[in-house]
């Protein structure tokens, strides 16, 4: 194609965009539908890159500036690919006084990551959050949907091995 517009035939053949079309179709005439659409789109794509945000803006007839504003506001949304396992350490008050800072430091060291970063093999992402509502189990971290509580500093290597093992078993 000699044209420089954004009409890409690649999108037409990408099943993920077909799925996104269905999501947009379902929500497009409802007020306040941006966040659910973004949420579902992230489920489909794993993250929300520029082209997905532009596609949603066009589909919902919303300004791209608004879409990007919402995506950047909520920590739930990510614009970069995330690891298969997202370690989210609670840094809320209860967890913090119970030593979540040390858990975080240890994870940084063991994974060689800063907050928000992902390992080169795409397996792990490290995140910090404010509160997951499980203060009784402090200090806690979540790995994707699973909560790990009452952690001690030296639980960290074991936890990482656990998910590495899971991955190896899964791939067999």
């Amino acid at each position: 194609m000699s044209c420089n517009c954004q009409c890409s035939t690649e999108k037409e053949n990408d099943p993920r965009f077909q799925e996104l079309d269905e999501i947009i179709e379902k929500y497009k005439n409802q007020a306040g539908s941006l966040i659910p659409v973004l949420h579902k789109a992230q489920g489909v794509f794993g993250h929300l890159p520029e082209e997905v945000q532009s596609y949603i803006a066009k589909g919902l007839k919303l300004p791209l500036s608004e879409v990007y504003g919402v995506v950047s506001f909520y920590s739930l949304f990510t614009t970069v690919p995330r690891g298969k396992y997202v370690f989210n350490v609670c840094l809320g008050t209860a967890c913090y006084v119970q030593g979540s800072r040390k858990i975080m430091d240890n994870l940084k060291k063991e994974l060689g990551l800063g907050i928000g970063e992902t390992t080169a093999d795409g397996l792990f992402t490290l995140e910090g959050c404010r509160c997951v509502g499980a203060c009784g189990l402090a200090p806690v971290l979540t790995v994707n949907e699973k909560v790990h509580g009452r952690l001690k500093e030296d639980d960290v290597p074991r936890l990482i091995s656990l998910y590495k093992l899971k991955e190896e078993q899964g791939s067999k």
């Binding site: 520029e50 945000q53 506001f73």
Partner: peptide, 15 residues
């Protein structure tokens, strides 16, 4: 638009 939150909030074109 206005993006990010807290201290990082700022005005910018998308992306």
């Amino acid at each position: 638009g206005l993006v990010e939150r807290g201290f990082a909030s700022h005005v910018t074109p998308p992306f």
